[in-house]
Design a protein around this nucleic acid. Sequence first.
DNA 1: GCAATGAGCGTC
DNA 2: ACGCTCATTGCT
Length: 689
Amino acid sequence: MSAPDPDALFDVEVAPAPVEAAPAPPRPAKGRPVPAATLPVARVQVDAPLAHLDRTFDYLVPDKVDAEAVVGCRVRVRFSRQLVDGFLIERVERSDVDPQKLLFLDRVVSAEPVLAPEVAELCRAVADRYGGTMIDVLRLAIPPRHARVEAEEPPERAPVPEPPDPAGWARYPRGSAFLDALRAGRQAHAVWQALPGEDWPARLAEVAATAAAAGRGAVLVVPDHRDVARVHAACVALAGADAVVALSADLGPAKRYRGWLAVCRGVARIVVGTRATAYAPVADPGVLVVWDDGDDQHSDPRSPYPHVRDVLIQRATLSGAALLVAGFARTAEAQLLSESGWAPQIVATRDQVRAAAPRVTAIGEHDSQLARDPAARTARIPSVAFEAARASLTAGHPVLVQVPRRGYVPSLTCQDCRTPARCRRCAGPLGLPAGDAKPPACRWCAATDANFRCQHCGSRKLRAAVIGARRTAEELGRAFSGFPVRTSGAAEVLSTVDSKPALVVATPGAEPVADGGYGAALLLDGWALLGRADLRASEEGLRRWMTAAALVRPGGQGGRVVVLAESATTPVQALVRWDPVWHAGVELAARAELGFPPAVRMASVDGPPSAVDRLLADLPLPPSGEVLGPVPLGEPDADGQAVRERALIRVDRAHGRALAAALAHAQAVRTARKDPDPLRVQLDPLELI
DNA sequence: GCAATGAGCGTC
DNA sequence: ACGCTCATTGCT
């Protein structure tokens, strides 16, 4: 061995020898991962918000995390030299991507399979339906991880409950057939209009428990957390506390994730919650329910703005679960489901309706019964309403007073002396109708007053003010002195009131349930509801009235409703006759006539004019497609140029998917060329005008 | 004929 | 959000 060994020389000069220095024998490079032996390729949906990246990307699964890298788990991957979160959608044997380019998963965040394949498929379908991205829908569907909660020991799976007594559904001819279908595990779709006074949380709990008794899961989606609490209690009574989970955003992250995990792990069979619950990963769902689908809380304010009703329709179609679209009132969308035969209706007979409904009186501009009674004048209330309230209080029942939401429509006061501006006919508050050029009008009787003169100081100048629930409450309290006045609104929402006589002033959506029912309801916001220049104004007005009026005792027991609105209009007629189905039919026909959703599919695109124009130029318009606008939106800038504008795109329902796909494509083109302008694309937006 | 510079595209 | 590719431009 005469040739000098460089390593040996090195050893001599620098001692001691570093252990790692010996290059031979070749060994697997330290730290470099080896792909898993089976299904080494993971398809990952990465959390990048760009439309052109809305697909899976392939990564190699290191054999060290083979067991954790389960389908549906959260992972972290290097994506364009950045670490991003993602969901493992699928594991496959090989990738079509150049093997040189494949990277390893950086890390499995947790082995919890939070994205069930059924839910992944649903989220993909919802994204496609709305022209949005899957990752945006996943963000709505899957709550943020809470590591400590995830580490907790999961409870036992709740036992299968006993089938509930179906007697509560006997008042609805097709009700028991629907329960039969659930019991037999048959797919059924239905649109249900609850009778006024119906204990609907109990009915929905029976639906859920019927599915659970058949060994399936149930998903119940309601507008707000008060409804969650009521339906949750009703479900617990039938199926036991362990079988039911309530989900709503106001629980806080830990509680919310604990409940959600209980559903995900199959512990709970019934889940009730607000809109995100539509995606809850219940095992083998047998029935999906949305209550009061007209409530705008069911529409998610985050992109791609999916609506619970649509999410559940998709889910029912994909999973084979039954679907129930329910409420006191009926939307045009539900009417379309019913008329098309896809979801037959469950409605009571007219005899049942007559027996259950309160007696409804409408007071409008052409009625003569306004404010004759001096006491009624004090309360700024027509005498019919005053009498109804007094009768209820005397009989020992509470009275519900529905008032416009604060700031909903501004009222007016005298500019000079601040006296509230009053209607000359009925002494109701004057307000400014939506739209600029219109004269002031009475919020109760809708009489217009173009020549206002202050009763107190004679000034002709008006100033906007707000008469909210509190003010109304004070004035009613004075008119009915001796009875307590309670308010329920944005500041503090009451869930229930007891059966003692009292005045309960509430804004729409915040009406407390009265033990034993209200003796009367005064619906004072008719003008505000129906006067809006909105496509849905009449549907929404009727929905709010019916929601309030359904809390009133039947007419046979003295229950009365007085609505301050023109009695000849369709929604008022529908309320008086308690016929939401008729109203929805008229409404749907009108929308078909005008070419509005749901008779057609519509999309809105809004943003800076240049961005809107560019998107429209890139948009491959499907057959039957038609662009309306764009029109300016909001206030113009100093030069009179529109800062934002909005275009509407209309297609036949048959081409709705194509429109969504075209919009997704156009968005992908935008994000690929890094167009920075904020652009909002909405399918079937709630507000069209 | 070739390096320096910039826009556009892809991200596994 | 970053780097890579490719085209264009300016200079020899």
